[in-house]
Amino acid sequence: MSEKIKNYRGEALKSADIKEGRVPTEKCRPKAKFAWSAGIAIGRFLEELKKAKIIASTCSKCGRIMVPPRIYCENCFKPTDGWKYVKDTGTINTYSVSYLAADATRLKEPILVAIIDLDGASEGMGIIHKLGEVDKEKIEFGMKVRAVWKPKEERVGSITDIKYFKPVKEETP
């Protein structure tokens, strides 16, 4: 604050002022329900997840194999012109051990979350997903992981058709 200004406005409230009703308030919960159209690219992506496959879209100009797929290449600003399956394996680009749920409540068992660069896609084309069947202490950058799919009858065309990614055991030569 400028040293010339002597009076700073604002009346701070404590959460008890609200809880105990010392300060009048209005409460509201907006009722808004949505049906988001999946669109063309993600619509296809979800259909393929149902078949336990991961599909990318490709741009013939810059040669990128992009996942999640899109119908336009944002770099070349032209329509993508091909579809290509990528593998359901990849490497951990970065990860976190989260003790927070979506509503900021605290979890006893952490969610393991990672960005996974998928094999077969262009370099650095990651998706965000969870990790499983791994001790949180043993996760490493660059670790090879594989998707664990829900059984066919449980797959509905959702990003959660992949339960999580788990470490790939190094095969002995």
């Binding site: 907006p30 808004a32 329900k33 949505f34 988001w36 999946a38 619509g43």
Partner: peptide
């Protein structure tokens, strides 16, 4: 093809 959801928030 759609995805159902809401924007839950209390005010």
């Amino acid at each position: 093809r759609h995805w159902l959801g809401d924007m839950e928030a209390d005010y």
